[in-house]
């Protein structure tokens, strides 16, 4: 029983990580109606920036917040400079541009920082919490950070005029212009915020999986799955989706099929969910008008 509990809690902890990356995906989807395949790599790159700052002697939290700002600016610049020219291109062409960004960031990180793995500090105490060994302080802290980001994101979209304007711009650009929303900047802002959230996710992931240029490749897939299971237009759903995917992956791996096939089986289950509920568990069902 205790090992089972351990697996579930470990699953929740990894799920928290998937959830944080899923939030970044939801963010950018809300703002631009694109799924950014380069999201994980931008997060990874931002984490390297944080690593450099900490190496340079900066205190953790200063580096943390500075990295968020840098990632935000990086996201805005990428949208303005690289994505903007293909705004009008077919969706698949945009996907190819995202793939291009993915390999560029991955390759640059490998070039600048090499492919040797690095340790990344955790801001949370090393001592396990409440005297239990089921879960580390960092894992609890990471889940907490994810929930805080979720709360901020939810409030932003729900209660601020800017959040409303961003949702409007993604949905109906023409009408948005007619009420005076600067649609182009909303897209850039969406990229900026998504990158910032991704940076937070990266800094929470890195102490667990270690920092290397490929650290996000597996996570992105699960985060993508989490976002879709939870509903890509629903931040709360995406976080819940993250936890579901994390627990599912761990418990299946430990008890049902062993670690060899856990990726495949987890994915089959996720797809099973989507086949039954094509808009995700908590996503909005889209009604098509003829």
């Amino acid at each position: 029983m205790e090992t089972f509990l351990h697996q579930v809690i470990a699953g929740l902890a990894t799920g928290g990580i998937y959830a944080s990356v899923a939030l970044a995906l939801v963010m950018i989807y809300q703002a631009t109606h694109h799924v950014n395949f380069a999201q994980g790599e931008i997060a990874m790159f931002s984490t390297y920036i944080a690593w450099s700052l900490i190496q340079a002697g900066m205190p953790y939290w200063v580096a943390f917040f500075l990295t968020i700002v840098i990632a935000f600016v990086l996201g805005v610049l990428v949208e303005r400079i690289i994505v903007r020219p293909v705004e009008q291109a077919p969706v698949l062409s945009v996907v190819v541009v995202f793939i291009g960004l993915l390999v560029i960031f991955n390759s640059l990180a490998g070039w600048i920082y090499t492919y040797t793995i690095k340790t990344f500090p955790s801001p949370f105490p090393e001592k396990p919490p409440f005297g239990t060994h089921l879960v580390s302080s960092h894992e609890i802290g990471a889940v907490g950070v994810t929930l805080v980001v979720l709360a901020l994101l939810y409030s932003f979209f729900r209660f601020t005029p800017l959040g409303l304007a961003m949702r409007a711009a993604a949905q109906n650009p023409e009408s948005s212009r007619l009420v005076g929303i600067r649609v182009g900047w909303m897209l850039a802002l969406g990229w900026g915020l998504a990158s910032a959230i991704g940076a937070i996710a990266g800094m929470m992931v890195a102490p667990i999986v270690f920092l290397d240029p490929n650290m996000m490749s597996g996570i992105l897939l699960y985060a993508f799955a989490a976002a879709l299971v939870g509903g890509i237009d629903n931040p709360g759903g995406a976080v819940l989706g993250g936890f579901i995917v994390g627990v599912l992956e761990n418990v299946l791996g430990a008890y049902v099929i062993g670690n060899d096939l856990k990726l495949s089986v987890a994915l089959v289950l996720i797809i099973g969910v989507l086949v039954i509920r094509p808009s995700g568990l908590f996503g909005r069902v889209h009604v098509t008008r003829v």
């Binding site: 005029p161 409303l164 304007a165 949702r167 409007a168 949905q171 109906n172 023409e174 009408s175 948005s176 007619l178 009420v179 929303i181 909005r284």
Partner: peptide
């Protein structure tokens, strides 16, 4: 030009 996925009130707020 309705923002179909938003509520009536949100549509007005956008105005």
């Amino acid at each position: 030009g309705t923002f179909t996925h938003l509520t009536t009130e949100e549509n007005l707020r956008l105005g």
